[in-house]
């Protein structure tokens, strides 16, 4: 076997795999988002044959998209996904930063153990970690039982099936994604810079605000994107912890598909979700590249 052929196989096999099973399916989603809904299996009427491109442009059917624009459920769910993802990202940062900071300050010999303790929950099932919060937050859950036992409340506080539960779920599930990049930047930070700041008259606190925080910006940005981007399209957390009035776009897509069996509308929702995600993803890559160059 020739050298060139070997190299070509190493490239082509994974390349073709991704072309067929990752890229081509998006083309199909796009195509079906322009199709008509029909109650059949599969529940849509194909708009055109693969062979007839001209016919496609003649009959291009934006019906599903105008439908999305007219029904305010979709608008609201896009906006509320962005809102929920943004608030959760902020809370994750506020919890994650002190932890990453303390880890970076910890004695060198216990740092690997601390790091593993952060990563370990990430390896255990996501679904199970979300499920664990149902028992904690529900009306007869551990928090309400404890508060009633302590005599702080008489009536259980409703926590499950609210936006609050969704915030808790996202923060809990994505905390390691925030801590890891933060820890990476804080750990390699030059301690002498802070010493210098203190020599020049900064207090511990002002040295943090003037030196540590600005220098850890790349970690903050990376961590925030790593939480914000996947949180927008989240399905499991709003479905299991959120209430009926917590609408997020991942949940809408799921119910259009599985409950209403409306494949074309589900596809149109997916296309718009992708368009919304492109902005933060491109920004993220831009920041990553700039960070690598420095």
């Amino acid at each position: 076997m020739g050298q060139g052929l070997q190299n070509r196989i190493v490239i082509l096999l994974p390349y073709l795999w991704l072309l067929i099973l990752f890229l081509a399916p998006f083309g199909i989603v796009l195509k079906i988002s322009f199709s008509d809904t029909a109650i059949a299996i599969p529940p849509y009427t194909p708009l055109w044959d693969w062979s007839d491109i001209r016919g496609f442009f003649a009959e291009l059917d934006f019906e599903n998209y105008t439908w999305l624009l007219e029904d305010d459920l979709y608008w609201k769910s896009y906006l509320s996904s962005l809102r929920i993802a943004a608030i959760s990202t902020l809370i994750t940062l506020l919890i994650g930063y002190p932890m990453a900071y303390a880890m970076a300050k910890a004695p060198k010999n216990i740092r690997p153990t601390l790091l593993m303790l952060i990563i370990l929950p990430f390896w255990t099932s996501f679904l199970i970690r979300v499920y664990a919060w149902i028992g904690i937050l529900k009306n007869e859950g551990y928090i309400n039982i404890a508060l009633e036992w302590l005599g702080i409340i008489d009536e259980p506080i409703m926590m499950l099936n609210t936006d609050f539960a969704v915030f808790v779920g996202i923060v809990y599930s994505y905390l390691p994604f925030m801590i890891l990049p933060l820890y990476a930047t804080l750990e390699k930070m030059d301690g002498s810079l802070i010493e210098a700041a203190k020599d020049l008259g900064c207090t511990e606190v002002s040295a943090f605000w003037k030196v540590t925080l600005p220098l850890s910006m790349p970690g903050i940005i990376a961590g925030c994107f790593l939480v914000f981007i996947p949180a927008i399209g989240e399905f499991v957390i709003p479905d299991l912890l959120g209430g009926s009035d917590t609408i997020m776009i991942g949940k809408v897509l799921w119910s259009e598909f599985f409950r209403n069996r409306d494949w074309p509308v589900a596809s149109a929702v997916a296309v718009l979700l992708l368009l919304i995600l492109i902005v933060p993803i491109v920004l993220f890559q831009h920041f990553q590249q700039r960070a690598e160059q420095n």
């Binding site: 890229l23 599969p42 399209g233 596809s267 997916a270």
Partner: peptide, 25 residues
């Protein structure tokens, strides 16, 4: 190629799932 390697890491699962299903159909 490198785009297709990195994109699935940030792609929402609902989109990946839906698109693969439509391919299989």
């Amino acid at each position: 190629f490198s785009g297709m390697i990195y994109a699935p890491l940030v792609m929402p699962e609902v989109i990946t799932g839906l698109s693969l299903l439509l391919l299989f159909v």
